[in-house]
């Protein structure tokens, strides 16, 4: 069984947010409810100020703190290493949102970021929280795996595009979107990433491209000291670092 993981090359990432938008399109996100967010921050002083950004999907931890606190076992880890929410079991208590150190979980019925509320404009007549005309094919909906237009009062999160990756041929080491045979099984954010900063593959296979990149380019994990063991790795290039352990190395 694969252990799916992602590598994000921060040297290539240009902060365009295409991952955010592609994910939003693929997974019918509400505006601002970004399963795949890019966090921007700036520091320093003119004319040597810094502007930085950090793409942050769910880290799909080996040891997910969100799962540990879930009272209904709605949050669970699949055999192939993905952390998911079963919307049939979720009661919307938000414990998981508090427990997650990465801030990547979202509650359905928050105040809308942009008014008027799209959920009212594209209102649903059934259990779904809204009914956008561009929603994913009905046949793809899969509440057990947290895929689809979510119902009211549940928590949602990045699924690594479970509806895509779960259909990949068993034993595939890497889901390379440039391979026409594997493209449709690759997470949307990886498919679209123009500078090619994202890689997706089987971390349990030492010969997969993701494993090699982590080895060769010294992949690091976000907030590794917490012990969650994310399955999302970052490679930082020369002088870069993930925010938790970054060092200032600015050339003038």
């Amino acid at each position: 069984m694969a252990k799916w993981g992602m590598v994000i090359d921060l040297e290539k990432c240009v902060g365009c947010q295409a991952c955010t938008v592609a994910c939003g399109m693929e997974n019918n996100r509400l505006p601002g409810e970004n399963w795949q967010d890019v966090i921007f921050f700036s520091e320093g002083t003119y004319p040597s100020a810094q502007l930085k950004w950090f793409p942050r999907p769910c880290q799909h931890c080996e040891n997910p703190s969100c799962m540990a606190v879930c009272p209904t076992h709605a949050t669970y880890k699949t055999e192939d290493g993905v952390v998911l929410v079963d919307w049939d079991k979720c009661i919307g208590c938000k414990y998981c949102m508090v427990a997650c150190p990465y801030g990547v979980r979202f509650y359905t019925d928050e105040k809308p970021l942009v008014a008027p509320d799209m959920r009212k404009v594209y209102a649903s007549k059934d259990d779904h929280s809204w009914n956008p005309p561009w929603k994913m094919p009905d046949a793809r909906e899969d509440w057990k795996h947290g895929v689809g237009i979510q119902p009211h009062d549940v928590v949602s999160k990045c699924t690594f595009c479970y509806h895509r990756i779960s259909k990949a041929p068993p034993g595939t080491p890497d889901l390379d979107p440039q391979d026409p045979k594997l493209r449709e099984f690759t997470p949307a954010c990886v498919v679209t990433c123009a500078p090619g900063a994202r890689f997706f593959g089987d971390l349990s296979n030492p010969e997969s491209n993701v494993s090699r990149i982590i080895g060769d380019k010294r992949g690091v994990r976000l907030l590794d000291q917490l012990g969650n063991k994310p399955q999302v790795y970052y490679v930082t290039g020369d002088g870069g670092a993930v925010p938790s352990s970054r060092a200032i190395n600015k050339k003038v």
Partner: peptide, 14 residues
Amino acid sequence: SMGKLCPKGHYGQY
């Protein structure tokens, strides 16, 4: 496009 898009490209259906 080589299979890629910028963020704007995904807005078509909206």
